[in-house]
Design a protein around this nucleic acid. Structure first.
Length: 502
RNA sequence: GGGCCGUUAGCUCAAUAGGUAGAGCAACUGAUUCUUAAUCAGUAGGCUGCAGGUUCGAUUCCUGCACGGCCCA
């Protein structure tokens, strides 16, 4: 155990002996820091409002001592507020308490009245002060904050204490989710829930996490997508539904990928993928405007304009334009030739995988919000065949800054075709493609009871949050990203753990 | 999985053609009743990520490992 902690723990005991509770139960907070700042912003410099009693509370961030008077700064969930305290006003006993035992990092409650300092800062004049919680760890550096990524990700609470920008990013994230809910509720969608534990995974191409259900002694998977259960709702009679929830993919971690991430999926009966394109651009531009009060953002130095309408282009046309190859008509040998030039021939060389690789070569060239339409049937096992060309499906992905932010189709509701598609996926699995989808016979059976024509849409919430916060890494907008376990923390408590053993 | 970079005080960072580690903030002791990165004087704080190697001597050079970051698959 480290010395500073020992001293602080001793101080906590000392406070108790002196009759103060270092961890009291409650404080009657009447105003947030922001409310104080807004309400009293128009005071003249030096003007006081002694008749207004305000109770504020928060964490002490800095203290500026001046002998028998001091200024300090309280941080609450919204803002920072300056507090003034002097011995004449609070009495010697309270001022001694402040000077000796209220330190940076502690939570305090202040009762007083507002005034504006000579230099023009809205400040609360302390009439009474109490400790609300003693911190026994040193706070990070007050000016530079925390820069060590390991601390930032593994001890996010420290990052949030020190770096106001992190809190701001998380607030934007949660406002995005709130705006999506608002939008969909206004449109008459019902928010539903589906299981996280699945007997089979489906709805996406990804490796799942495996877990064990003791009571049935069976392995189960954490969901990789919401899709197949949401469609069961549509079979059952729901017409407009959505779910926002965590999905889990047991794959690499990168600036774009976290093993658990947040998806929204939306299903609308009697709609097709054209309707879903309209819904997507309407919803996303609504959210961007609601959260940032503009439709144009700058992401990593590039301006992105979310205003409607978004561009709509066919995958076949786009790849033909960029690579001079027709993904539907040209023989597979020609596709391979092109891929060889870029040294990215896939292991499994069927047309679907070849096309996917070709697309990977050019996706960076789409920057502004664009719907890339009509994916080949081989790589779209849950999408309905195109009404004009059965080699492709009525599927699109919204692309922004070269990244897929979602996936949508006219949902496949022909149970016989669906079973065939699943069997194709089985073949791929047998060929070693661990990401191919599992055969979900109960889902086929559900479709056999009849699912109305349906448009479906999934969007990665994390990716949207990255754009709206200008974050280069997904870890910057996931409050507690997946990390390796923190071995250091056990070392910090080694003494105590060893003492308890003996 | 491969390549490159990093790891020094609680935090943010210095340093050395190999010669026993410094600053600011935080902490501690004083001074200071309108400051705001307050100021001034002083004190304390380090197995330089871990384990080996080379050397009279390693924080510095070499190897391996751990953790992190960036790029690639």
């Amino acid at each position: 155990m480290d010395d500073l902690r020992k001293i602080k723990i001793a101080e906590v005991e000392e406070l108790r002996l002196k009759g103060y509770n270092p961890y009291p139960y409650k404080f009657e907070k009447t105003h947030s820091n922001r409310e104080i700042k807004e309400k009293y912003s128009k005071l003249e410099n030096g003007q006081t409002v002694e008749e207004d009693n305000v109770n504020v509370a928060g964490r002490v961030m800095t203290i500026r001592y001046h002998g028998k008077s001091s200024f300090f700064v309280l941080k609450d969930s919204e803002d920072r507020l300056q507090i003034y305290i002097n011995q004449n006003a609070v009495g010697k006993e309270r001022y001694e308490l402040f000077k000796e035992h209220i330190k940076i990092g502690d939570f305090v409650g202040v009762k007083g009245f507002p005034f504006k300092s000579k230099t023009g800062e809205v400040t609360v004049f302390t009439k009474d002060i109490e400790i609300l919680s003693k911190a026994i760890r040193p706070m990070p550096e007050k000016w530079h904050g925390i820069k060590d990524k390991e601390i930032i990700y593994k001890q996010r609470y420290v990052d949030m204490i020190a770096n106001d920008a992190s809190i701001k990013n998380f607030k934007i994230r949660f406002e995005i989710i709130k705006a999506i809910r608002e939008f969909l509720w206004q449109k008459g969608f019902v928010e539903v829930e589906t299981p996280v534990l699945h007997h089979l995974t489906g709805g996406a191409s990804a490796r799942p996490f495996v877990t064990h259900l003791n009571v049935y002694d069976i392995n189960m998977y954490l969901r990789i997508a919401l899709e197949l259960y949401l469609k069961r709702y549509i079979v059952g009679g729901f017409e407009k539904i959505f779910e926002i929830g965590k999905c889990f993919r047991n794959e690499g971690i990168s600036y774009k990928h976290n093993p658990e991430f947040t998806m929204i999926e939306i299903y609308q009966a009697y709609a097709d993928y054209n309707d879903m394109m309209d819904l997507t651009e309407e919803m996303i531009s609504y959210v961007v405007k609601k959260v940032l009060n503009t439709e144009k953002i700058v992401y990593q130095g590039v301006e992105i304009d979310f205003s409607r309408p978004w561009k709509r282009i066919k995958m076949r046309d786009f790849i033909a334009e960029k690579l001079g190859v027709d993904i539907l008509e040209d023989p597979e040998e020609k596709l391979i030739q092109v891929l060889e030039k870029y040294d990215s021939v896939p292991e499994i060389k069927d047309r679907g995988h070849l096309i996917e690789k070709l697309w990977d070569l050019v996706e960076d060239e789409i920057v502004q919000p664009t719907f890339l339409m009509d994916y080949p049937v081989e790589i779209s096992p849950l999408a309905k065949r195109h009404r004009e060309d059965p080699r492709v499906t009525e599927r699109f992905e919204p692309i922004i800054f070269g990244r897929e932010i979602g996936n949508a189709f006219s949902e496949l509701n022909d149970p016989v075709d669906q079973l065939q598609r699943f069997l194709k996926q089985q073949e791929l699995r047998n060929m070693g493609d661990e990401e191919a989808q599992m055969l979900d016979l109960d889902f086929v059976r559900a479709l056999e009871y009849g699912m109305p024509p349906t448009g479906g849409l999934g969007i990665g919430i994390d990716r949207i949050a990255m754009f709206l916060t200008d974050s280069p890494s997904i870890r910057d907008i996931i409050p507690f990203p997946t990390t390796k376990p923190d071995e250091e923390v056990a070392k910090e408590y080694e003494d105590i753990l060893n003492v308890n053993k003996t």
